[in-house]
Design a protein around this nucleic acid. Structure first.
Lengths: 247, 247
DNA sequence: CGCCTGGTTGATAAAATTCAAAACTTGTGG
DNA sequence: CCACAAGTTTTGAATTTTATCAACCAGGCG
Protein backbone atom coordinates (compact mmCIF):
# COMPACT_ATOMS: atom_id res chain seq x y z
CA UNK A 1 0.00 0.00 0.00
CA UNK A 2 1.30 3.43 -0.90
CA UNK A 3 0.98 6.63 1.03
CA UNK A 4 -1.98 7.57 -1.21
CA UNK A 5 -4.23 5.35 0.83
CA UNK A 6 -6.70 2.64 -0.06
CA UNK A 7 -5.65 0.42 -2.91
CA UNK A 8 -9.01 0.87 -4.57
CA UNK A 9 -8.17 4.54 -5.05
CA UNK A 10 -4.86 3.77 -6.69
CA UNK A 11 -6.52 2.26 -9.72
CA UNK A 12 -5.47 3.99 -12.90
CA UNK A 13 -6.62 3.80 -16.49
CA UNK A 14 -3.27 2.18 -17.30
CA UNK A 15 -4.08 -0.95 -15.34
CA UNK A 16 -7.87 -0.90 -15.58
CA UNK A 17 -9.42 -4.06 -16.97
CA UNK A 18 -12.29 -2.04 -18.39
CA UNK A 19 -10.19 0.17 -20.64
CA UNK A 20 -11.32 -1.65 -23.77
CA UNK A 21 -14.94 -0.68 -23.13
CA UNK A 22 -14.36 2.72 -21.68
CA UNK A 23 -12.79 6.04 -22.73
CA UNK A 24 -9.17 4.74 -22.86
CA UNK A 25 -9.93 2.49 -25.83
CA UNK A 26 -7.25 2.89 -28.53
CA UNK A 27 -5.23 5.53 -26.64
CA UNK A 28 -1.45 5.27 -26.62
CA UNK A 29 0.27 5.24 -23.26
CA UNK A 30 1.10 8.93 -23.30
CA UNK A 31 -2.50 9.91 -24.00
CA UNK A 32 -3.69 7.39 -21.46
CA UNK A 33 -1.61 9.00 -18.78
CA UNK A 34 -2.91 12.46 -19.70
CA UNK A 35 -6.45 11.15 -19.39
CA UNK A 36 -5.65 9.40 -16.15
CA UNK A 37 -4.32 12.65 -14.70
CA UNK A 38 -7.66 14.41 -14.96
CA UNK A 39 -9.73 11.59 -13.51
CA UNK A 40 -10.79 11.76 -9.87
CA UNK A 41 -11.49 8.65 -7.87
CA UNK A 42 -13.25 8.86 -4.55
CA UNK A 43 -14.66 6.64 -1.87
CA UNK A 44 -17.26 4.08 -2.89
CA UNK A 45 -20.90 5.08 -3.12
CA UNK A 46 -23.43 2.97 -1.32
CA UNK A 47 -26.76 1.60 -2.43
CA UNK A 48 -29.22 4.44 -3.07
CA UNK A 49 -26.47 7.11 -3.02
CA UNK A 50 -27.05 9.71 -5.70
CA UNK A 51 -24.34 10.44 -8.24
CA UNK A 52 -26.14 13.44 -9.72
CA UNK A 53 -29.62 14.87 -10.11
CA UNK A 54 -31.60 16.14 -13.08
CA UNK A 55 -30.97 19.86 -13.63
CA UNK A 56 -27.54 19.69 -11.97
CA UNK A 57 -25.00 21.64 -13.95
CA UNK A 58 -22.79 19.35 -16.00
CA UNK A 59 -19.46 19.24 -14.18
CA UNK A 60 -18.32 15.70 -14.81
CA UNK A 61 -19.05 12.59 -16.75
CA UNK A 62 -18.78 9.38 -14.77
CA UNK A 63 -17.40 6.01 -15.69
CA UNK A 64 -18.61 3.09 -13.64
CA UNK A 65 -15.59 1.44 -12.07
CA UNK A 66 -17.45 -1.22 -10.06
CA UNK A 67 -21.01 -1.91 -9.01
CA UNK A 68 -23.98 -0.56 -10.94
CA UNK A 69 -26.27 2.43 -11.33
CA UNK A 70 -29.69 3.28 -12.68
CA UNK A 71 -30.45 6.53 -14.38
CA UNK A 72 -33.99 7.81 -14.36
CA UNK A 73 -36.24 10.81 -14.74
CA UNK A 74 -39.01 11.83 -12.37
CA UNK A 75 -42.23 12.95 -13.98
CA UNK A 76 -44.72 15.53 -12.78
CA UNK A 77 -46.58 12.90 -10.76
CA UNK A 78 -43.37 12.16 -8.88
CA UNK A 79 -42.96 8.76 -10.48
CA UNK A 80 -39.66 7.58 -11.78
CA UNK A 81 -38.93 6.31 -15.24
CA UNK A 82 -35.72 4.35 -15.46
CA UNK A 83 -33.84 5.16 -18.64
CA UNK A 84 -30.84 2.89 -18.23
CA UNK A 85 -28.81 0.53 -16.09
CA UNK A 86 -25.06 1.08 -16.02
CA UNK A 87 -22.39 -1.56 -15.50
CA UNK A 88 -18.63 -1.21 -15.06
CA UNK A 89 -17.01 0.50 -18.04
CA UNK A 90 -20.17 2.41 -18.96
CA UNK A 91 -20.06 6.18 -19.17
CA UNK A 92 -22.91 8.09 -17.58
CA UNK A 93 -23.99 11.62 -18.34
CA UNK A 94 -23.86 12.07 -22.12
CA UNK A 95 -27.37 13.45 -22.15
CA UNK A 96 -26.14 16.42 -20.11
CA UNK A 97 -23.91 17.78 -22.87
CA UNK A 98 -26.67 19.37 -24.92
CA UNK A 99 -28.01 21.74 -22.27
CA UNK A 100 -24.91 21.58 -20.07
CA UNK A 101 -27.06 20.13 -17.33
CA UNK A 102 -28.06 16.63 -16.38
CA UNK A 103 -31.37 15.40 -17.72
CA UNK A 104 -31.64 12.43 -15.40
CA UNK A 105 -30.89 11.30 -11.86
CA UNK A 106 -28.32 8.58 -11.30
CA UNK A 107 -28.38 6.36 -8.21
CA UNK A 108 -26.13 3.51 -7.13
CA UNK A 109 -27.90 0.16 -7.08
CA UNK A 110 -25.26 -1.36 -4.82
CA UNK A 111 -21.88 -0.39 -3.37
CA UNK A 112 -20.11 1.08 -6.39
CA UNK A 113 -17.11 3.09 -7.46
CA UNK A 114 -16.88 5.64 -10.23
CA UNK A 115 -14.18 7.50 -12.10
CA UNK A 116 -15.10 11.16 -12.24
CA UNK A 117 -14.09 12.98 -15.41
CA UNK A 118 -14.33 16.78 -15.38
CA UNK A 119 -16.12 17.61 -18.60
CA UNK A 120 -14.44 20.84 -19.65
CA UNK A 121 -11.00 19.36 -19.12
CA UNK A 122 -12.03 16.26 -21.06
CA UNK A 123 -13.30 18.46 -23.84
CA UNK A 124 -9.96 20.30 -24.00
CA UNK A 125 -8.06 17.05 -23.93
CA UNK A 126 -10.11 15.95 -26.94
CA UNK A 127 -8.38 18.68 -28.96
CA UNK A 128 -4.92 17.28 -28.18
CA UNK A 129 -5.94 13.64 -28.46
CA UNK A 130 -8.11 12.91 -31.50
CA UNK A 131 -8.48 9.26 -30.50
CA UNK A 132 -10.08 10.34 -27.24
CA UNK A 133 -12.58 12.55 -28.99
CA UNK A 134 -13.36 9.75 -31.42
CA UNK A 135 -13.93 7.28 -28.62
CA UNK A 136 -16.32 9.71 -26.94
CA UNK A 137 -18.24 9.95 -30.20
CA UNK A 138 -18.26 6.19 -30.55
CA UNK A 139 -19.62 5.76 -27.05
CA UNK A 140 -22.35 8.35 -27.63
CA UNK A 141 -23.19 6.72 -30.93
CA UNK A 142 -23.42 3.34 -29.19
CA UNK A 143 -25.80 4.81 -26.64
CA UNK A 144 -28.02 6.10 -29.45
CA UNK A 145 -28.03 2.67 -31.07
CA UNK A 146 -28.85 1.01 -27.76
CA UNK A 147 -31.77 3.40 -27.26
CA UNK A 148 -33.16 2.52 -30.69
CA UNK A 149 -32.86 -1.17 -29.85
CA UNK A 150 -34.76 -0.65 -26.63
CA UNK A 151 -37.46 1.22 -28.55
CA UNK A 152 -37.71 -1.80 -30.82
CA UNK A 153 -37.93 -4.19 -27.86
CA UNK A 154 -40.69 -2.25 -26.16
CA UNK A 155 -42.72 -1.66 -29.33
CA UNK A 156 -42.51 -5.14 -30.83
CA UNK A 157 -42.05 -7.73 -28.14
CA UNK A 158 -44.49 -9.40 -25.79
CA UNK A 159 -43.88 -9.16 -22.06
CA UNK A 160 -42.20 -12.57 -22.02
CA UNK A 161 -39.92 -11.67 -24.93
CA UNK A 162 -39.01 -8.40 -23.25
CA UNK A 163 -38.01 -10.10 -20.03
CA UNK A 164 -36.01 -12.69 -21.97
CA UNK A 165 -34.32 -9.89 -23.92
CA UNK A 166 -33.51 -8.06 -20.73
CA UNK A 167 -31.85 -11.08 -19.14
CA UNK A 168 -30.02 -12.07 -22.32
CA UNK A 169 -28.75 -8.53 -22.87
CA UNK A 170 -27.56 -8.24 -19.29
CA UNK A 171 -25.81 -11.61 -19.61
CA UNK A 172 -24.00 -10.39 -22.73
CA UNK A 173 -22.95 -7.23 -21.00
CA UNK A 174 -21.51 -9.21 -18.09
CA UNK A 175 -19.72 -11.43 -20.58
CA UNK A 176 -18.16 -8.41 -22.33
CA UNK A 177 -16.79 -7.35 -18.97
CA UNK A 178 -15.05 -10.65 -18.34
CA UNK A 179 -17.67 -11.82 -15.87
CA UNK A 180 -19.83 -14.88 -16.16
CA UNK A 181 -22.58 -14.54 -18.76
CA UNK A 182 -24.17 -17.66 -17.26
CA UNK A 183 -24.61 -16.68 -13.66
CA UNK A 184 -24.98 -13.26 -12.14
CA UNK A 185 -26.77 -11.19 -9.57
CA UNK A 186 -29.46 -8.68 -10.51
CA UNK A 187 -28.68 -5.48 -8.65
CA UNK A 188 -32.07 -4.04 -9.59
CA UNK A 189 -35.48 -5.01 -8.24
CA UNK A 190 -38.24 -6.64 -10.28
CA UNK A 191 -40.08 -3.34 -10.06
CA UNK A 192 -37.11 -1.54 -11.61
CA UNK A 193 -36.90 -4.08 -14.42
CA UNK A 194 -40.60 -3.62 -15.08
CA UNK A 195 -40.34 0.14 -14.98
CA UNK A 196 -37.55 0.02 -17.55
CA UNK A 197 -39.34 -2.44 -19.84
CA UNK A 198 -42.77 -0.86 -19.58
CA UNK A 199 -44.28 -3.71 -17.53
CA UNK A 200 -45.63 -4.05 -14.01
CA UNK A 201 -43.77 -5.81 -11.19
CA UNK A 202 -46.33 -8.59 -11.18
CA UNK A 203 -45.84 -9.26 -14.86
CA UNK A 204 -42.06 -9.37 -14.51
CA UNK A 205 -42.30 -11.72 -11.56
CA UNK A 206 -44.74 -14.04 -13.30
CA UNK A 207 -42.70 -14.18 -16.49
CA UNK A 208 -39.37 -14.70 -14.79
CA UNK A 209 -40.97 -17.63 -13.03
CA UNK A 210 -42.31 -18.88 -16.35
CA UNK A 211 -38.79 -18.81 -17.79
CA UNK A 212 -37.73 -20.86 -14.78
CA UNK A 213 -40.56 -23.37 -15.25
CA UNK A 214 -39.57 -23.70 -18.89
CA UNK A 215 -36.03 -24.47 -17.69
CA UNK A 216 -34.45 -21.53 -19.54
CA UNK A 217 -33.14 -20.03 -16.32
CA UNK A 218 -32.85 -20.82 -12.65
CA UNK A 219 -33.80 -18.08 -10.21
CA UNK A 220 -32.70 -17.77 -6.62
CA UNK A 221 -33.83 -14.38 -5.44
CA UNK A 222 -31.54 -11.89 -7.12
CA UNK A 223 -29.33 -14.61 -8.59
CA UNK A 224 -29.88 -15.76 -12.14
CA UNK A 225 -28.40 -18.87 -13.66
CA UNK A 226 -28.94 -19.25 -17.38
CA UNK A 227 -29.62 -22.91 -18.11
CA UNK A 228 -30.38 -22.75 -21.82
CA UNK A 229 -28.71 -19.72 -23.36
CA UNK A 230 -29.65 -20.74 -26.91
CA UNK A 231 -33.37 -20.98 -26.18
CA UNK A 232 -33.27 -17.79 -24.16
CA UNK A 233 -31.56 -15.96 -27.03
CA UNK A 234 -34.07 -17.39 -29.51
CA UNK A 235 -36.97 -16.22 -27.37
CA UNK A 236 -35.34 -12.81 -26.97
CA UNK A 237 -34.89 -12.46 -30.71
CA UNK A 238 -38.52 -13.21 -31.49
CA UNK A 239 -41.07 -10.48 -32.04
CA UNK A 240 -44.65 -10.38 -30.92
CA UNK A 241 -45.96 -11.67 -34.24
CA UNK A 242 -43.07 -13.82 -35.41
CA UNK A 243 -44.44 -16.55 -37.66
CA UNK A 244 -43.29 -19.62 -35.73
CA UNK A 245 -42.80 -20.09 -32.03
CA UNK A 246 -40.25 -22.31 -30.35
CA UNK A 247 -41.19 -25.63 -28.80
CA UNK B 1 -29.20 32.23 -61.48
CA UNK B 2 -25.52 31.40 -61.64
CA UNK B 3 -23.76 29.02 -63.94
CA UNK B 4 -23.82 26.41 -61.16
CA UNK B 5 -27.38 25.52 -62.06
CA UNK B 6 -30.55 25.24 -59.98
CA UNK B 7 -30.84 27.82 -57.27
CA UNK B 8 -31.71 25.11 -54.76
CA UNK B 9 -28.21 23.73 -55.17
CA UNK B 10 -26.59 27.08 -54.51
CA UNK B 11 -27.74 27.10 -50.92
CA UNK B 12 -24.86 27.46 -48.52
CA UNK B 13 -24.54 27.20 -44.76
CA UNK B 14 -23.88 30.96 -44.74
CA UNK B 15 -27.39 31.79 -45.85
CA UNK B 16 -29.23 28.77 -44.49
CA UNK B 17 -32.15 29.54 -42.22
CA UNK B 18 -31.59 26.28 -40.36
CA UNK B 19 -28.06 27.05 -39.23
CA UNK B 20 -29.18 27.68 -35.65
CA UNK B 21 -30.45 24.12 -35.34
CA UNK B 22 -27.83 22.41 -37.43
CA UNK B 23 -24.07 21.93 -37.42
CA UNK B 24 -23.21 25.60 -38.16
CA UNK B 25 -24.51 26.75 -34.79
CA UNK B 26 -22.00 29.10 -33.10
CA UNK B 27 -19.41 28.90 -35.90
CA UNK B 28 -17.65 32.09 -36.99
CA UNK B 29 -17.80 32.97 -40.66
CA UNK B 30 -14.39 31.53 -41.46
CA UNK B 31 -15.25 28.18 -39.88
CA UNK B 32 -18.64 28.26 -41.51
CA UNK B 33 -17.09 28.59 -44.91
CA UNK B 34 -14.70 25.70 -44.21
CA UNK B 35 -17.66 23.56 -43.25
CA UNK B 36 -19.62 24.71 -46.26
CA UNK B 37 -16.75 23.68 -48.53
CA UNK B 38 -16.98 20.02 -47.56
CA UNK B 39 -20.75 19.75 -47.88
CA UNK B 40 -22.26 18.26 -51.01
CA UNK B 41 -25.71 19.17 -52.20
CA UNK B 42 -27.45 17.13 -54.85
CA UNK B 43 -30.77 16.88 -56.61
CA UNK B 44 -33.85 16.39 -54.45
CA UNK B 45 -34.86 12.94 -53.33
CA UNK B 46 -38.41 11.85 -53.95
CA UNK B 47 -40.90 10.13 -51.71
CA UNK B 48 -39.71 6.63 -50.81
CA UNK B 49 -36.15 7.27 -52.10
CA UNK B 50 -33.58 5.72 -49.84
CA UNK B 51 -30.83 7.86 -48.35
CA UNK B 52 -28.90 4.93 -46.90
CA UNK B 53 -29.44 1.37 -45.74
CA UNK B 54 -28.58 -0.49 -42.56
CA UNK B 55 -25.08 -2.02 -42.81
CA UNK B 56 -23.94 0.55 -45.37
CA UNK B 57 -20.47 1.78 -44.56
CA UNK B 58 -20.54 5.20 -42.92
CA UNK B 59 -19.46 7.65 -45.59
CA UNK B 60 -21.52 10.69 -44.77
CA UNK B 61 -23.82 12.20 -42.24
CA UNK B 62 -26.85 13.95 -43.68
CA UNK B 63 -28.57 17.15 -42.68
CA UNK B 64 -32.16 17.54 -43.78
CA UNK B 65 -32.39 20.65 -45.89
CA UNK B 66 -36.08 20.40 -46.81
CA UNK B 67 -38.78 17.77 -46.66
CA UNK B 68 -38.66 14.89 -44.18
CA UNK B 69 -37.34 11.39 -43.61
CA UNK B 70 -38.04 8.37 -41.48
CA UNK B 71 -35.30 6.15 -40.16
CA UNK B 72 -36.11 2.57 -39.34
CA UNK B 73 -34.75 -0.91 -38.79
CA UNK B 74 -36.07 -4.08 -40.38
CA UNK B 75 -36.33 -7.06 -38.07
CA UNK B 76 -35.90 -10.74 -38.89
CA UNK B 77 -39.58 -11.03 -39.83
CA UNK B 78 -39.08 -8.32 -42.43
CA UNK B 79 -41.14 -5.79 -40.50
CA UNK B 80 -40.00 -2.25 -40.05
CA UNK B 81 -39.62 -0.39 -36.80
CA UNK B 82 -39.46 3.34 -37.24
CA UNK B 83 -36.90 4.88 -34.92
CA UNK B 84 -37.28 8.52 -35.85
CA UNK B 85 -38.76 11.20 -38.07
CA UNK B 86 -36.40 13.87 -39.32
CA UNK B 87 -37.28 17.46 -40.17
CA UNK B 88 -35.20 20.22 -41.75
CA UNK B 89 -32.10 20.98 -39.69
CA UNK B 90 -31.92 17.48 -38.22
CA UNK B 91 -28.77 15.45 -38.64
CA UNK B 92 -29.19 11.81 -39.60
CA UNK B 93 -26.67 9.04 -39.13
CA UNK B 94 -25.14 9.47 -35.68
CA UNK B 95 -25.84 5.86 -34.83
CA UNK B 96 -23.42 4.83 -37.59
CA UNK B 97 -20.36 6.25 -35.85
CA UNK B 98 -19.89 3.44 -33.36
CA UNK B 99 -19.48 0.59 -35.84
CA UNK B 100 -18.65 2.84 -38.78
CA UNK B 101 -21.75 1.52 -40.51
CA UNK B 102 -25.36 2.58 -40.56
CA UNK B 103 -27.66 0.83 -38.13
CA UNK B 104 -30.88 1.96 -39.77
CA UNK B 105 -32.44 2.67 -43.14
CA UNK B 106 -33.48 6.21 -44.01
CA UNK B 107 -36.21 6.95 -46.55
CA UNK B 108 -37.63 10.25 -47.77
CA UNK B 109 -41.26 10.74 -46.76
CA UNK B 110 -41.78 13.39 -49.43
CA UNK B 111 -39.69 15.33 -51.92
CA UNK B 112 -36.70 16.37 -49.85
CA UNK B 113 -33.21 17.77 -50.03
CA UNK B 114 -30.21 16.93 -47.90
CA UNK B 115 -26.77 18.32 -47.24
CA UNK B 116 -24.27 15.49 -47.42
CA UNK B 117 -21.35 15.76 -45.01
CA UNK B 118 -18.41 13.38 -45.58
CA UNK B 119 -17.72 11.95 -42.16
CA UNK B 120 -13.94 11.61 -42.17
CA UNK B 121 -13.53 15.15 -43.45
CA UNK B 122 -15.96 16.40 -40.83
CA UNK B 123 -14.00 14.54 -38.19
CA UNK B 124 -10.76 16.20 -39.33
CA UNK B 125 -12.43 19.58 -39.43
CA UNK B 126 -13.46 19.03 -35.82
CA UNK B 127 -9.78 19.18 -34.85
CA UNK B 128 -9.37 22.64 -36.39
CA UNK B 129 -12.72 23.96 -35.25
CA UNK B 130 -13.52 23.12 -31.63
CA UNK B 131 -16.95 24.75 -31.88
CA UNK B 132 -17.88 22.33 -34.66
CA UNK B 133 -16.88 19.32 -32.61
CA UNK B 134 -18.79 20.69 -29.65
CA UNK B 135 -21.90 21.21 -31.74
CA UNK B 136 -21.69 17.63 -32.99
CA UNK B 137 -21.53 16.46 -29.40
CA UNK B 138 -24.44 18.67 -28.46
CA UNK B 139 -26.54 17.26 -31.29
CA UNK B 140 -25.70 13.68 -30.35
CA UNK B 141 -26.46 14.46 -26.74
CA UNK B 142 -29.80 15.96 -27.78
CA UNK B 143 -30.62 12.80 -29.71
CA UNK B 144 -29.90 10.71 -26.61
CA UNK B 145 -32.18 12.92 -24.54
CA UNK B 146 -34.93 12.71 -27.17
CA UNK B 147 -34.66 8.91 -27.16
CA UNK B 148 -35.07 8.84 -23.36
CA UNK B 149 -38.13 11.07 -23.67
CA UNK B 150 -39.66 8.73 -26.22
CA UNK B 151 -38.97 5.81 -23.90
CA UNK B 152 -40.86 7.68 -21.21
CA UNK B 153 -43.77 8.42 -23.56
CA UNK B 154 -44.15 4.82 -24.63
CA UNK B 155 -43.77 3.35 -21.15
CA UNK B 156 -46.02 5.73 -19.26
CA UNK B 157 -48.65 7.17 -21.51
CA UNK B 158 -51.95 5.79 -22.73
CA UNK B 159 -52.58 5.56 -26.44
CA UNK B 160 -54.44 8.87 -26.44
CA UNK B 161 -51.67 10.64 -24.52
CA UNK B 162 -49.08 9.23 -26.89
CA UNK B 163 -50.89 10.51 -29.95
CA UNK B 164 -51.35 13.90 -28.30
CA UNK B 165 -47.65 13.96 -27.41
CA UNK B 166 -46.71 13.07 -30.96
CA UNK B 167 -48.73 15.90 -32.44
CA UNK B 168 -47.65 18.41 -29.82
CA UNK B 169 -43.98 17.50 -30.25
CA UNK B 170 -44.20 17.73 -34.01
CA UNK B 171 -45.89 21.11 -33.69
CA UNK B 172 -43.06 22.35 -31.48
CA UNK B 173 -40.48 21.10 -33.92
CA UNK B 174 -42.19 22.94 -36.77
CA UNK B 175 -42.30 26.03 -34.59
CA UNK B 176 -38.55 25.84 -33.89
CA UNK B 177 -38.00 25.82 -37.64
CA UNK B 178 -39.92 29.01 -38.17
CA UNK B 179 -42.96 27.21 -39.56
CA UNK B 180 -46.44 27.27 -38.15
CA UNK B 181 -46.81 25.27 -34.96
CA UNK B 182 -50.58 25.57 -35.42
CA UNK B 183 -51.09 24.10 -38.85
CA UNK B 184 -48.99 21.59 -40.70
CA UNK B 185 -49.04 18.57 -42.93
CA UNK B 186 -48.13 15.12 -41.66
CA UNK B 187 -45.72 13.61 -44.15
CA UNK B 188 -46.05 10.20 -42.51
CA UNK B 189 -49.02 7.82 -42.65
CA UNK B 190 -51.14 6.87 -39.64
CA UNK B 191 -49.51 3.44 -39.84
CA UNK B 192 -46.07 5.02 -39.53
CA UNK B 193 -47.15 7.08 -36.54
CA UNK B 194 -48.51 3.94 -34.91
CA UNK B 195 -45.38 1.99 -35.68
CA UNK B 196 -43.27 4.68 -34.05
CA UNK B 197 -45.49 5.01 -30.97
CA UNK B 198 -46.09 1.30 -30.47
CA UNK B 199 -49.76 1.44 -31.48
CA UNK B 200 -51.80 0.02 -34.36
CA UNK B 201 -53.10 2.08 -37.27
CA UNK B 202 -56.64 1.62 -36.08
CA UNK B 203 -55.83 2.99 -32.65
CA UNK B 204 -54.05 6.03 -34.09
CA UNK B 205 -56.96 6.71 -36.42
CA UNK B 206 -59.55 6.38 -33.66
CA UNK B 207 -57.62 8.58 -31.27
CA UNK B 208 -56.83 11.29 -33.76
CA UNK B 209 -60.52 11.43 -34.47
CA UNK B 210 -61.23 11.57 -30.76
CA UNK B 211 -58.92 14.58 -30.45
CA UNK B 212 -60.91 16.14 -33.25
CA UNK B 213 -64.25 15.39 -31.58
CA UNK B 214 -62.91 16.92 -28.39
CA UNK B 215 -62.06 20.03 -30.43
CA UNK B 216 -58.36 19.90 -29.63
CA UNK B 217 -57.41 19.59 -33.28
CA UNK B 218 -58.97 19.72 -36.70
CA UNK B 219 -58.01 17.01 -39.17
CA UNK B 220 -58.27 17.19 -42.91
CA UNK B 221 -56.50 14.13 -44.21
CA UNK B 222 -52.81 14.80 -43.72
CA UNK B 223 -53.40 18.36 -42.55
CA UNK B 224 -53.56 19.09 -38.86
CA UNK B 225 -54.82 22.30 -37.38
CA UNK B 226 -54.31 22.67 -33.65
CA UNK B 227 -57.37 24.35 -32.17
CA UNK B 228 -56.54 24.21 -28.47
CA UNK B 229 -52.79 24.05 -27.99
CA UNK B 230 -53.05 24.40 -24.21
CA UNK B 231 -55.39 21.45 -23.78
CA UNK B 232 -53.37 19.39 -26.22
CA UNK B 233 -50.17 20.14 -24.31
CA UNK B 234 -51.89 19.32 -21.01
CA UNK B 235 -53.08 15.99 -22.37
CA UNK B 236 -49.63 15.28 -23.76
CA UNK B 237 -48.00 16.01 -20.43
CA UNK B 238 -50.24 13.64 -18.51
CA UNK B 239 -49.21 10.13 -17.69
CA UNK B 240 -51.32 7.01 -17.72
CA UNK B 241 -52.01 7.22 -13.99
CA UNK B 242 -51.91 10.96 -13.42
CA UNK B 243 -54.12 11.78 -10.45
CA UNK B 244 -56.60 14.15 -12.11
CA UNK B 245 -57.83 14.22 -15.67
CA UNK B 246 -58.79 17.27 -17.63
CA UNK B 247 -62.39 18.15 -18.29
C1' DC C 1 -62.34 3.01 -64.97
C1' DG C 2 -60.64 -0.01 -61.61
C1' DC C 3 -56.96 -0.97 -58.60
C1' DC C 4 -54.16 -0.13 -54.76
C1' DT C 5 -52.84 2.41 -50.79
C1' DG C 6 -54.34 4.74 -46.91
C1' DG C 7 -57.82 5.71 -43.63
C1' DT C 8 -62.03 4.72 -40.88
C1' DT C 9 -65.36 2.10 -38.12
C1' DG C 10 -67.29 -1.79 -35.48
C1' DA C 11 -67.26 -6.23 -32.97
C1' DT C 12 -64.51 -9.45 -30.56
C1' DA C 13 -60.46 -11.22 -28.21
C1' DA C 14 -56.25 -11.31 -25.78
C1' DA C 15 -52.54 -9.66 -23.20
C1' DA C 16 -51.20 -7.29 -19.49
C1' DT C 17 -52.80 -4.25 -15.73
C1' DT C 18 -55.01 -3.55 -11.50
C1' DC C 19 -56.35 -4.81 -7.05
C1' DA C 20 -55.78 -7.67 -3.13
C1' DA C 21 -53.33 -10.42 -0.08
C1' DA C 22 -49.88 -13.27 1.52
C1' DA C 23 -44.99 -14.92 1.83
C1' DC C 24 -40.51 -13.90 1.90
C1' DT C 25 -36.07 -10.78 2.55
C1' DT C 26 -33.44 -7.36 4.33
C1' DG C 27 -32.11 -4.02 7.41
C1' DT C 28 -32.29 -1.72 11.92
C1' DG C 29 -32.31 -0.93 16.62
C1' DG C 30 -32.82 -2.67 21.08
C1' DC D 1 -28.58 -11.75 18.11
C1' DC D 2 -33.23 -11.43 17.92
C1' DA D 3 -37.55 -9.08 16.71
C1' DC D 4 -39.92 -6.04 14.22
C1' DA D 5 -40.64 -2.98 10.33
C1' DA D 6 -40.04 -1.96 5.74
C1' DG D 7 -39.34 -3.30 1.32
C1' DT D 8 -39.69 -6.91 -2.21
C1' DT D 9 -41.61 -10.84 -4.51
C1' DT D 10 -45.19 -13.95 -5.47
C1' DT D 11 -49.87 -15.60 -6.52
C1' DG D 12 -54.78 -15.24 -7.77
C1' DA D 13 -58.99 -13.06 -9.71
C1' DA D 14 -61.20 -9.37 -12.07
C1' DT D 15 -60.80 -5.62 -15.29
C1' DT D 16 -59.32 -2.76 -18.96
C1' DT D 17 -56.93 -1.24 -22.72
C1' DT D 18 -55.56 -1.95 -27.00
C1' DA D 19 -54.86 -5.41 -30.61
C1' DT D 20 -56.99 -8.16 -33.92
C1' DC D 21 -60.08 -9.26 -37.50
C1' DA D 22 -63.19 -7.81 -40.88
C1' DA D 23 -65.39 -4.77 -43.71
C1' DC D 24 -65.85 -0.58 -46.07
C1' DC D 25 -64.78 4.07 -47.94
C1' DA D 26 -62.04 7.68 -50.36
C1' DG D 27 -58.78 9.24 -53.41
C1' DG D 28 -54.95 9.15 -56.62
C1' DC D 29 -52.70 7.07 -60.37
C1' DG D 30 -51.79 4.08 -64.13
Amino acid sequence: MTSKGLSAQNISCQNCSLSQLCLPYSLDSDSLSKLDDIIERHKPLHKRDRLFSAADKLQCLFAVRSGSFKSFTINQDGEEQITGFHLPGDLIGFDAIHEQQHQTYADALETSMVCKIPYTILDDLGVQIPALRQQMMRLMSAEITADKRLHNVINNKSAEQRVATFIATLANRFGERGLSARQFRLSMTRAEIGNYLGLTVETVSRLMNRLQNDALIDIDGKFIHILDAAKLAALAQQNRDSPCKLT
